[in-house]
Amino acid sequence: MNNANAVKNDQSANADSRAGKYLTFFLASEEYGVEILKVQEIIGRMPITPVPLTSRYIRGVINLRGKIHPIMDLKIKFGMEETQITDETCIIVIKTTSMMMGILVDKVSEVINIASGDIEDTPSFGGDVNPEYLLGVGKTGGRVRLLLDIEKVITASDIINMKKAAAGEGKDAMAEL
């Protein structure tokens, strides 16, 4: 009995940190979720200024009430097709302790409460998929939502891409020859 209780406590403590309100959104046909407390706001599409010599998944920067914020294309980051901007495309502005960044998503879905019992650990996929970005898998109302560890996603440090610049220049020079 004692033993069982201890195990249960352990589990709930573990799950507790993941349980809570999530904002969910679509990337292509998959539904993802981010913790609502990390979301500063949701804005409709607006003109994005591309920044040269940065990684492909950085779509550029936007002006949000006088402050400049970078915008990340999550689909490119996750190895999918580049996001096509439509009327439903949204930018979710994420605020972490250290930075602010917008993420580009195909469609915002809803805010749901996911209980600890509904969260499963991320299975290991092997191959290309990086499970580090996932907190777990939420299952409510018969739908599967991939819960993102958004802080890990956006603090990846390889934003500036010098290689691209060098390669581009080299390629063109070669072409001219």
């Binding site: 200024t49 920044v51 040269p52 010599l53 940065t54 950085i58 920067v61 006088g66 402050k67 400049i68 914020h69 970078p70 250290s98 930075m99 602010m100 960044m101 603090t155 440090s157 934003i159 500036i160 010098m162 610049a165």
Partner: peptide
């Protein structure tokens, strides 16, 4: 002149936004 946001401030050839 404004900063481009964290992680974006050392983009070569760009002084700011």
């Amino acid at each position: 002149t404004k900063l481009l946001g964290k992680g974006m401030n050392n983009v070569p050839g760009i002084a700011g936004g």
